[in-house]
């Protein structure tokens, strides 16, 4: 395992509070995920890849921004692994870096339509940028 990867894996585990070793690899998270088709790496892969320390690959993936935080995987996991927390932790690892915000404030006006509620803006800003 690459050293920075190993450090980052530990960081992800610490931030998320998730123990990927609890996973029994049943794939229920990916069976239930509504954003599955949008993702390059699926929820069960997040768990497996964090366990194996493949953090850089995850950090480079658009999958990070496809999670809906709907908590279906969290709710239904028989081992209480909470994959969504891993997705969030890896995403934070990216957007906490300088200049790595996925969504920038200046992009917002273009995305707005008349009906969009504050809730959507705040959520997106919280999820996609720091």
């Amino acid at each position: 395992m690459h050293d920075t990867n190993k450090d980052m894996a530990e960081q992800v585990i610490r931030m998320s509070g998730v123990n990927p070793r609890k996973c029994m690899k049943c794939g229920k998270c990916s069976g239930t995920c509504p954003a599955y088709d949008e993702m390059e790496y699926h929820p069960h892969q997040f768990v497996a890849m964090v366990e194996k320390g493949r953090i850089e690959e995850l950090m480079a993936s658009k999958s990070l921004y496809k999670c809906l935080s709907c908590f279906a995987c969290v709710e239904r996991c028989p081992r209480n692994v909470e994959p969504a927390k891993l997705v969030e932790a890896v995403r934070l690892l990216v957007i906490r870096q300088q200049g790595k915000n996925y969504l920038k404030a200046e992009d917002l006006p273009a995305l707005l339509d008349e009906k969009i509620p504050q809730q959507a803006l705040v959520s997106a800003m919280r999820k996609y940028s720091k």
Partner: peptide, 11 residues
Amino acid sequence: VQGSDLLNNEQ
């Protein structure tokens, strides 16, 4: 019945 097919990496 929605589920995962892990060997084919499909939902």
